[in-house]
């Protein structure tokens, strides 16, 4: 099977010039969006406009930290979007945990779970930065540079495995069969580790989790 490539030409141009976003306003990053939308920065001039449902959206905005609980919803929403779809990680929290770097309950690296196309650094990023990011995304899409959804599809098992480490993917994935399979594997692995449970092992496992999470 030929490798899937992001569209270029008319399709790419149209996709770049008409980005409909689904904001997942989990963290404080959301407050930076209104200025971007309204008269000062006016993102609509680039054809970017907010949408209500993932079915209609092309771009998923993760605006801030994600707890495990919200991650489940984010993954589901992402999987419900039509292709092509892009993800922008918003602020430090999505890059490395940011100020939540030692939280037991937030994820630290978003791209372990979802294929992030673009990060916007900062805590919080200024609207100018956001506009800059949008511009880069648009340019990249036109040239067919961003291929997050293709990566996600190709490495689905890896993503699912990572997700399965911290959440019950069976319930939250669209592809039930794969989720079931991966979930069973992960559980099996986890069971094995706990069977040979010595204290170092458990520590080791805990470290791995913290690395993942």
């Amino acid at each position: 099977m030929a490798k899937e490539r992001p569209p270029k030409g008319l399709k790419g141009w149209a996709q770049g010039r008409s980005l409909w976003i689904l904001q997942f306003c989990t963290g404080c990053g959301a407050v930076e969006l209104p200025p971007v939308m309204t008269s000062r920065y006016d993102m609509e001039r680039f054809g970017i406009t907010p949408m209500a449902t993932p079915r209609q959206a092309d771009l998923l905005l993760i605006t801030g930290y994600l707890t495990v609980k919200t991650l489940k919803r984010v993954i589901r929403s992402y999987e419900q979007m039509g292709e092509p779809k892009y993800v922008i990680g918003f602020g430090s929290c999505t890059v490395n945990g940011g100020m939540y770097w030692d939280s037991y309950n937030t994820i630290k690296r978003l791209d372990l779970y979802l294929p992030v196309d673009l990060y916007i650094a900062g805590c919080m990023p200024r609207p100018e930065a956001i506009i800059e990011a949008f511009n880069r995304l648009i340019e990249g899409i036109k040239q067919g540079k961003f291929n997050g959804w293709i990566r996600y599809k190709e490495n689905l098992r890896w993503y699912k495995r990572n997700q399965a480490m911290i959440m019950d993917i069976r319930k939250w994935s669209i592809d039930k069969k794969l989720a079931e399979e991966v979930w069973r594997e992960v559980q099996e692995e986890r069971r094995k580790i706990f069977e040979q449970a010595t204290v170092p092992h458990v520590y080791e496992y805990a470290e791995r989790i913290s690395e993942v999470g």
Binding site: L10, W13, S18, S39, E44, R45, G47, D58, G82, E83
Partner: peptide
């Protein structure tokens, strides 16, 4: 709204984009 706004042909772009999307539910 005192904004600049999209180009007047923005909706044509939207429609082209929508028809170019794949794998919708």
């Amino acid at each position: 709204h005192n904004r600049y706004g999209p180009p007047f042909y923005q909706n044509i772009i939207d429609v082209i984009k929508l028809f170019s999307k794949k794998d919708v539910a």
